[in-house]
């Protein structure tokens, strides 16, 4: 197995209260140094709640946002500059809101042509053939090409978004909440389409979602993000079934499951990003927290087999 994507200590800091001269008033660490390896053909699921840094991470991976530090390697080639065009041929992005990711004043054909012309220099017959091929791949009818985005339902618009991402012939797709804006019956259609495309085109996926069940259903491996750091990674089968980090356990227990009684979920919120706690960010909500947790940041380490957790007191059976 070769590595499709490797990040080394990728981090991003945002300045708050910029001044014309001099340093900013404060800094927020949206993503703490993250090191991830994704194998060729693998689907890595990334879960986390709002504000955990998952979208910032995704935007860095496709070059829409320059990282503050760290490096990105795609198939062994380092990509450090934030130039979406350089990233574009290797890695593409599927957006959460399918309708707002399509320019309302362009026809679908114009939207589809952009990456083919800009990244691959296609013209004329070759361009038309490629568009037809892509539309066929995502099960859309060719007559849709002359229409405008507002004429489509969410599910259809998301297929167009996927077709546009595939037009760049990337090796990796970043799927940022690709189905959370869709109805459940349509959600399953799109997920199955993605699975089918992956096996046919030999793609690698990074699947970002807040929906644990969906991530579990599509991923090989899952990374859990909390407050900008990876707190646990592991195989999809065992991560939620036998969580090692108390936060993962809280997530798994919070997911609504038929027949499970309500309650038991403790309150608590994310720490203030302007004033982060010194130790583990989860310590304030954690039932297992000790003094060590409140003073020292835990690092990711193997707990059992392929399961890694950033916890001083991981849950072991």
């Amino acid at each position: 197995m070769t590595l499709a994507l490797k990040t080394t200590d990728l981090a991003r800091t945002f300045d708050i209260g910029k001044r014309l001269f001099g340093p900013p008033r404060a800094q927020v660490h949206a993503v703490h140094p993250v090191s991830l390896d994704v194998q060729q053909g693998e689907t890595l699921g990334i879960v986390g709640e709002s504000g955990c840094g998952k979208s910032t991470l995704a935007r860095m991976l496709v070059g829409l946002l320059p990282p503050t530090s760290g490096s990105i390697e795609i198939e062994g080639r380092a990509l450090d500059r934030a130039d979406p065009a350089a990233f574009g041929r290797l890695i593409q992005y599927v957006f959460q809101d399918p309708v707002s990711s399509l320019n309302p004043r362009k026809t679908i054909r114009q939207i589809m042509e952009a990456p083919l012309r800009q990244l691959h220099g296609l013209k004329g017959r070759a361009l038309d053939d490629r568009i037809a091929e892509l539309f066929d791949a995502v099960n859309l009818r060719p007559e849709f090409l002359s229409r405008y985005p507002h004429e489509f339902s969410g599910g259809q618009a998301q297929r167009i978004g996927i077709a546009r991402a595939l037009a760049a012939s990337p090796r990796i797709l970043i799927l940022d909440e690709p189905v959370s804006a869709l109805d459940v019956s349509v959600q399953a259609q799109v997920l199955n389409l993605l699975a089918d495309l992956k096996s046919r085109l030999g793609l690698t996926y990074l699947f970002i979602s807040h929906d644990l069940a969906v991530v579990e259903a599509v991923s090989d491996r899952i990374a859990v993000l909390y407050f900008g750091s990876v707190v646990e990674t592991g195989p999809a089968e065992s991560l939620f079934a036998a969580p090692r980090h108390p936060y993962t356990k809280l997530l798994a227990e919070s997911a609504p499951v038929v027949g499970r009684p309500l309650g038991g979920a403790q309150s608590g919120e994310l720490p203030d990003p302007l004033n982060p706690p010194p130790g583990c960010a989860f310590a304030g909500r954690c039932p297992r927290a000790s003094d060590l947790c409140r003073s020292e940041v835990p690092h990711l380490r193997a707990v059992e087999g392929d399961q890694f957790a950033a916890c001083h007191h991981p849950i072991t059976d």
Binding site: V184, S185, Q189, A195, A213, E216, A217, E237
Partner: peptide, 18 residues
């Protein structure tokens, strides 16, 4: 259609059409 947590990796049953 709705995956339930704890089911592992699987193909989902979709409803065709809109």
């Amino acid at each position: 259609c709705v995956p339930e947590l704890g089911g592992g990796r699987r193909v989902l049953a979709a409803i065709p059409g809109l």
